[in-house]
Nucleic acid binder design. Sequence first.
DNA 1: GTTAGGG
DNA 2: CCCTAAC
Length: 605
Amino acid sequence: METEVGVEGNDEGKFEEAGFGKTYSSLSSTKQLTDPVVYKLVRVEGDGRLVPATDDEVMEVKGLLIDEKSEMHIVADIGQPIGCISNEGSSSGMLLQLESSEGLSQFENTEVDPDKLNARLEETVPSFTPSLIDSHLHQSGSIDECSNTPVLTEGGALPSTTVTTSKPDFSKLNGEICLDNLSIKELHETFKATFGRETTVKDKQWLKRRITMGLTNSCDVSATTFIIKDNKLVKKGKEDGCDNVDGALAYNLAVGTTINCSQQGAPISHGSQLEDQVVSDKRNRSTGDNSGSEDHHTEQRAAKRVRKPTRRYIEELSEVESKESSGKLRTTVKSSAFGQMSSKFHFRPVRNVSSDGRTVVTRLDSLGGSGIQIPCVSRVRRSRPRKNFMALLKFNPNSMGMTATLVKKALGAHSFLPDNYESEKAQSAPAQVQQRFLGVPDKDKQFTAIGAVGGHHKVLKQVDSSGDSDDNIVTVPTSKGGIRRKHHRAWTLSEVMKLVEGVSRYGAGRWSEIKRLAFASYSYRTSVDLKDKWRNLLKASFAHIPSDKGVNSRKNAATMPIPEPILLRVRELAERQSQVPPNLTSGKEAGSSGSSVHEKQSGYL
DNA sequence: GTTAGGG
DNA sequence: CCCTAAC
């Protein structure tokens, strides 16, 4: 029996005879990896079990890897074997398990990592000259004749060469290829033409699968019939229901930019350019039972060996795309009809050229399935900046207690403020400070200090640093031409307090006034924002009244916990201005107004 | 341009 | 936060 070492999904085209009648994967395809990769060597027993490789076996493979100068090391231990056996042709074989920093799951079921596969294919699919040899590989074509013909590549891939560096010669592949009808020898030729490597593997299923994967640049091996014309994979026969991935999976050998290992059944938006090059007529060419019945096991299982691109891959691809100004790929806006799964694949980078001539990189996002194109910003934190939340917690560790302390402190002690507080405050907002401190009741002035604390205190600066500093708010164009802010900005406690204070002073509804006078330093808060926030505050304040007794620690963890004193004040202001939400009038007014610390506001408005 | 209210 | 009607 044959011992085979292979890294599933990475070894196409990299096989060589290594003596001892064993076939090894050279693993050279992973040389481009930057992250260290740990391979675990296991043996595949006949019954499918994975057992640790012996030291000798490890050393044997290790030597090969070292020869290839690959930047990885092999460890002899095995973790949880999760890979499945690649093919049933070899009753027993060796299997290398890939383990990356992202965890084993990434290579679950020994799937292809599109990243590496793509990178490798760009290496192994070089600029081949079209149709140097226009030998048609028809069913029982003249393969034998060209079997001994040296491939027209600089590598000089002689059949007996152990280590071949020749490049694929797709020119040898032209016309219709039905892998099922090919003999082992023919398959070898096809393999060689596809990968530029010799292979001695006798397993027909294995060969077919490898070639299929190589031709389609995907892990979809559901098809075994290909039409190759002008070095392009024109057509791919199908035999299962994976029609919808046809266009996207078909690998254009000349372009070589698209890769898409989607789950079968996931609808894919076809790039217009791709569609121009990939003729997709599934009906005409549905090969039905092209493959023998024995194939079904392998191929059905192989059909599962697909995996969606990782986010990192997507982002890296996006990054590359934005660097190289080569608009090869164009994804059309998909119509509706997108299911749940489809949304995962909306990230394919798109490059548009706007009317002014500048190149605009956009990304087809799945905002509500509307196909909005938003700027493709690589490696941006998509979620809300964490610091806001953390700072909020810092400012308000125990939603109620700490805040109360701070409020009290700010109300009473100015020593809480740093020495340069006055100057800092004067610099940042001289006008409103002056106005605030004119003819304003004493206590209100103190409360003003609270707001100033949130906005200008050095320690708390970080709370809102994201606001003042970044004027470049990411806005995205909406479907209707308008713009829309991309990120929500969490309302900090200081902002809320400022808002409350502003409402108390200028009255609810004078949002532009409040914005202009109290939120001058918060350029990102519009008057509408203030209004909306106040509306939410109102809702929150009255919603919390019923459970005021006892269990007020039970806050909704999802939303920002508004400290009770603030809610109290909101409630009070709302009542004063008869803004009490009609439906939530269940609460009692007496308690809030009486016990409130903010009686100071009473005569003010 | 602002405000109010719905989405 | 966005959108829009109604000031």
